[in-house]
Design a binder for these strands. Structure first.
Length: 478
RNA sequence: UCCCCGAUAGCUCAAUGGUAGAGCGAGCGGCUGUUAACCGCUAGGUUCUAGGUUCGAGUCCUAGUCGGGGAGCCA
């Protein structure tokens, strides 16, 4: 008999038809000797299929019931019938049950009770078997599918930018070094008059990187933006979607050392176009997940954050606020709120300022734009005021910055000057500058942190619980 | 990395410096179709690690490790 997934079994019209299902037992309820109920889950949906086990019907039923515990993997054949009791529409009256693998109740960590997320993080290999992480896996999958569909339906090309990079670009934080050198015996640059004995007190500058795999220092990417711009300026609208690495020693509920980022890049786009696309993008993918994961989203709203559905509805139904940085400063200065960090034009907005804007003042997403150039990277388009750049950050309630983007500086001379202003060597950016030297066009793009979007979407409090195997300082287990 | 808080049974947590406890889970038994079933019994501990103070430390002190909340950095 063909296996039917639980999701389909639950949707089927129960006419007493013979079906077979397989999965893992979530709970067992024994009503009396030789009679009990099993909750079968196979990850196809949040709900379990209730299996009715009557030892007078199921061969070896009594012995099977004794062996089967939470976590046991089994196969069941039986009749799918309407359930006479509350709690489920259909149930499977077993005629045959077999065990794939036992799960010793004495040692199996997942119990028939709620667990803290802190505990589940310690058993990341088993937490996909919980309601929360099963739902998360399905929602994450649906979000990724929605992201691809959003861009694919608009004719964007999916570009694979490199994970390993030798351009120490952007200065977007600490990077992870990639090397095949023997770290216990690093080759040094020969320096005849070096006062230090070999291998002692040397800095990275003393390493002979020419002996390394790539012949120069290499790192894991912190962004695919610079590379994807080469395609935006050639084949048109495009996006990258892949893992990103930041070696910052950040210990917060919103930071990961390895996370996934979506970075679209569009030629002939200016900042206002960029903001429009970012807003449509967020609203579209959120709606898509609500449509496709209704049961899982109801679960998050019920068990994780009772406001999450209302928050998403509010975001989808209303236009985002678009606010120049300068006006945001005016609002913060005159709002009468006492902030720990004083507000003044030119400061980088702190968490408390962002939260005030999104959670108290506007109570919806805010797109801040035209930031002081001193706060932003070299590649952003310099406004004529000489003070600001065409940057934009999309801030959402609770999570904070979910998107960062900008119109790119496409004027060769201005970009060279900006590089120098940021104490970067234009020679190191020769290929990036070439895009401005030959057939330069206005273009813009942004980056969405996938895990931050999932925080917004699910109401989860900690980013370590929206990715299967989180990498954070001092933690890369599993 | 900084500030604050925490670490005790499988899990969630109690325990004036003086014999280590509960609920849940687990095991066993019972129970007329249960819904985090219910009832009874049983087992389960190097109190995070290393030092120190004390007649005596789960409790006080120091350092470390890990976790939580907040901050910085950012997506």
């Amino acid at each position: 008999m063909d296996r039917i997934k639980v999701k389909l079994a639950l949707q089927a019209e129960p006419t007493g038809q013979e079906i077979e299902s397989r999965g893992w037992v979530r709970t067992k309820r024994e009503s009396k000797q030789g009679f009990g109920f099993l909750e079968l889950n196979d990850g196809s949906c949040l709900s379990n299929l209730q299996i009715v086990v009557d030892a007078s019907v199921v061969p070896d039923g009594e012995a099977l019931l004794k062996q089967i515990t939470t976590g046991t993997s089994i196969g069941v054949q039986g009749k799918l019938v309407a359930s006479p009791a509350k709690g489920q529409k259909v149930e499977l009256q077993a005629t045959r049950i077999w065990i794939y693998g036992l799960a010793d109740g004495k040692t199996y960590p997942l119990q028939k009770k709620g667990h803290s997320f802190e505990f589940l993080r310690e058993i990341a290999h088993l937490r996909p078997r919980t309601n929360s992480f099963g739902a998360m896996a399905r929602v994450r999958n649906a979000l990724c599918a929605a992201i691809h569909e959003f861009f694919q339906s608009r004719g964007f090309l999916y570009i694979h930018t490199p994970i390993i990079t030798t351009s120490d670009c952007e200065g977007a934080g600490q990077m992870f070094r990639v090397t095949t050198l023997d770290v216990a015996k690093l080759p040094r640059v020969a320096r005849s008059n070096s006062p230090l004995p070999p291998g002692e007190g040397a800095s990275a500058d003393d390493i002979d990187w020419s002996q390394d795999f790539f012949g120069k220092p290499a790192s894991l990417t912190v962004s695919g933006q610079l590379e994807v711009e080469t395609f935006a300026c050639a084949t048109g609208d495009c996006y990258t979607f892949g893992p990103t690495f930041r070696a910052e020693n950040s210990n917060t509920a919103r930071h990961l050392a390895e996370f996934w980022m979506v970075e679209p890049e569009m030629p002939f786009f200016e900042l206002v176009d960029n903001m429009g696309l970012a807003e449509t993008f967020i609203r579209t993918i959120l709606q898509q997940v609500l449509d496709r994961c209704a049961e899982d989203m109801a679960f998050f709203n019920e068990r994780i954050d009772k406001t999450v559905l209302a928050t998403l509805r509010n975001i989808i139904d209303h236009d985002f606020i678009r606010l120049p940085y300068t006006e945001a400063i005016t609002i913060l200065e005159s709002c009468g709120q006492a902030f720990e960090f004083p507000v003044k034009w030119g400061i980088d907005l702190q968490s408390e300022h962002e939260r005030f804007l999104t959670e108290q003042h506007f109570k919806q997403p805010v797109i801040l734009f035209d930031y002081p150039r001193t706060l932003k990277p070299f590649y952003m388009w310099c406004n004529d005021d000489g003070k600001t750049v065409r940057a934009m950050d999309v801030l959402v309630p609770r999570v904070g910055e979910i998107i960062g983007g900008s119109q790119r500086e496409d004027r060769y001379d201005v970009l060279v000057e900006r590089l120098k202003e940021c104490h970067l060597n234009p020679d190191d950016y020769w290929w990036y500058l070439d895009l401005r030297r030959y057939g330069s066009v206005p273009h813009a793009g942004f980056g969405l942190g996938l895990e931050r979007a999932l925080l917004l979407l699910t109401g989860m409090a900690n980013i370590r619980d929206v990715i299967a195997f989180p990498r954070t300082p001092k933690n890369a287990d599993f």
